[in-house]
């Protein structure tokens, strides 16, 4: 093709130039990230602190959180008992610190289990038309029951243990994930890049692994953080009404449940675990909000 030919219809065939310049390299630095995503940084830092507290619980000046000391019941917070002692003389500080383990384990485990299960169901629904109608009606059914009621019902059927709490909350939470993934899959599979991959001879399993799953990751991560926060609240609620983790394990819900009877005279027993639960859930939600803003271009409005 000759260069610079003008034709009857008016399109000048210019020689290839401007379009061939090297592509623009994106700048990415830590400070830019912090400035652009303050919520991710704040939420992530708070959550990291909570995780460190949970991991390092034995080294943070704690004593055995289950050790009874009937002679030292219901002590006010002091230099020796930072958060005071409960009605059985156990150190509330140690119990709250160890309780972080249960909350975080349940939160992360439910987020992981619900995400994996939901992704699988969502993929199957998105790709198999026949299965879609049936599975989505089942998901509708599960979602029509408030998740905390469903979790209580499931816990009533089983023995109280951390594992069962995780399963019960996951069952209550995964239909939402499957809905989300199904929608994403349905829109992705019509995308030209998926059609191009099909035309390039890529078979279905590789289409899913290379083209569908990586593009579901962003909404999945955002959703997982919100499920994590919700799971921690449900876990605390279950423990509070005695349907959650067994009473011998210190969890924030258990501590609050035991402190409830003394609420009017010794409010600190309820107060400290509640503060920790608030901060943890807040940090996870902040992280989720930040991730959504950063990963979802439709919602991110920054210059």
């Amino acid at each position: 093709m000759s260069s610079a030919t003008t034709t009857q219809s008016g399109y000048a065939a210019a020689p290839a130039l401007a379009d061939v310049l090297p592509p623009v390299r994106q700048r990415g630095r830590v400070m830019t990230f912090v400035r652009r995503n303050p919520t991710i940084v704040l939420g992530g830092t708070l959550l990291l602190v909570m995780v460190l507290i949970a991991i390092l619980a034995p080294y943070l000046g704690t004593v055995d959180p289950t050790a009874l000391a009937p002679a030292k019941r219901t002590r006010e917070p002091s230099a020796q008992y930072w958060f005071g002692t409960d009605m059985l003389g156990r150190d509330v500080y140690s119990r709250v610190i160890y309780g972080a383990r249960i909350s975080l384990i349940v939160g992360f485990a439910v987020a992981a289990v619900a995400s994996i299960l939901g992704t699988f169901i969502g993929l199957v629904s998105g790709f198999i038309r026949g299965a879609d109608a049936i599975m989505m009606r089942v998901m509708d059914g599960l979602m029509s029951i408030p998740s905390i009621l469903l979790a209580i019902a499931l816990m009533a059927l089983t023995r109280a243990s951390v594992q069962n709490v995780v399963i019960a909350i996951s069952v209550a939470e995964f239909p939402r994930v499957s809905r989300l993934i199904r929608g994403v899959v349905l829109s992705l599979r019509e995308q030209p890049f998926v059609e191009a991959a099909v035309a390039s001879g890529t078979r279905l399993p590789m289409i899913i692994v290379k083209h569908i799953l990586p593009n579901t990751l962003a909404p999945l991560m955002v959703n997982a953080t919100f499920i994590c926060a919700s799971a921690m609240i449900i876990e605390a609620s279950l423990s509070f009404i005695g349907a959650g983790t067994p009473p011998i394990i210190p969890s924030w819900g258990n501590i609050m449940a035991e402190g409830r009877a003394l609420w009017q005279v010794k409010p600190y027993i309820v107060f400290f675990p509640a503060i920790f639960l608030c901060i943890t859930v807040l940090s996870v939600n902040l992280l989720g909000d930040g991730l959504r803003d950063a990963l979802d271009p439709r919602l991110a409005k920054r210059l």
Partner: peptide, 17 residues
């Protein structure tokens, strides 16, 4: 033996590859 070039240069390439 038969290949394709699509219209939209933005949606025809996987953004994560």
């Amino acid at each position: 033996r038969v290949q394709v070039v699509f219209q939209d240069p933005f949606s025809s390439l996987n953004p994560r590859m």
